[in-house]
Simulated scan of single mutants.
Amino acid sequence: MAAALQGAPVNTLDIDIVYSRSEQNIARLMAALTELEAVFRTDPRRLVPNESHLRSTGHKLLQTKHGLLDVLATIEESTSYDDLLPDSTVLEVAGVLVRVLSLERLIEVKAKLTRPKDRAMLFLLQATLDEKRRAP
């Protein structure tokens, strides 16, 4: 989603978020996940995430009433929300301010992944970044 919001011609089937694990933010995220009717998508029992899950460092792969949502405490080896702040930018989307990874940082993250879809996206991300740099 960060790539698309910054002009890259990409589609995604899910939204990934990296979140702050502060107590205040965990409470806000828990309220949002409840409103979204989030459940773990790989669990046949339709297990609902709780605050303990959100305090952990793992990835929470969720299904919501609006689609797929990957809730990530960290990315790469152990890069946290706070670590990513310097490499992010704030965009306005439908009147709401949204913090997203910069194209430069997104390219770094994708370059470390081995899935074919991530590798293929690298070319589009780099081309988009090159275009933005050339624009007046």
Rank of each mutant, 00 (worst) to 15 (best):
6 Q>N: 02
83 D>L: 00
51 E>P: 07
84 L>M: 15
113 L>K: 02
43 D>L: 00
108 E>S: 15
77 E>H: 11
54 L>D: 04
36 L>T: 13
119 R>F: 06
87 D>V: 01
93 V>M: 10
93 V>W: 11
6 Q>C: 02
60 K>L: 15
119 R>L: 12
121 M>E: 14
48 V>S: 01
59 H>D: 15
66 H>P: 02
27 A>E: 14
52 S>F: 09
102 S>A: 05
18 V>Y: 05
64 T>N: 02
79 T>D: 11
11 N>L: 07
80 S>A: 08
116 P>Y: 03
101 L>T: 13
8 A>P: 07
14 D>V: 03
104 E>A: 10
68 L>P: 04
47 L>N: 09
48 V>T: 03
69 L>G: 01
10 V>M: 04
80 S>D: 07
40 F>S: 00
68 L>D: 11
127 A>V: 06
76 E>T: 07
73 A>D: 14
41 R>C: 08
14 D>Q: 02
44 P>I: 03
128 T>I: 11
20 S>A: 15
37 E>N: 04
70 D>T: 04
33 L>E: 04
62 L>Y: 03
72 L>E: 03
77 E>N: 10
28 R>N: 15
71 V>S: 14
109 V>H: 12
56 S>D: 13
4 A>W: 12
58 G>A: 10
120 A>G: 13
67 G>N: 10
73 A>F: 12
76 E>N: 11
75 I>K: 06
98 V>T: 03
89 T>D: 06
126 Q>E: 12
107 I>T: 07
116 P>D: 07
68 L>C: 06
100 V>T: 08
18 V>N: 03
126 Q>R: 10
106 L>C: 07
73 A>V: 12
25 N>A: 01
64 T>D: 04
41 R>W: 09
95 G>Y: 12
44 P>F: 05
128 T>F: 11
36 L>D: 14
102 S>W: 05
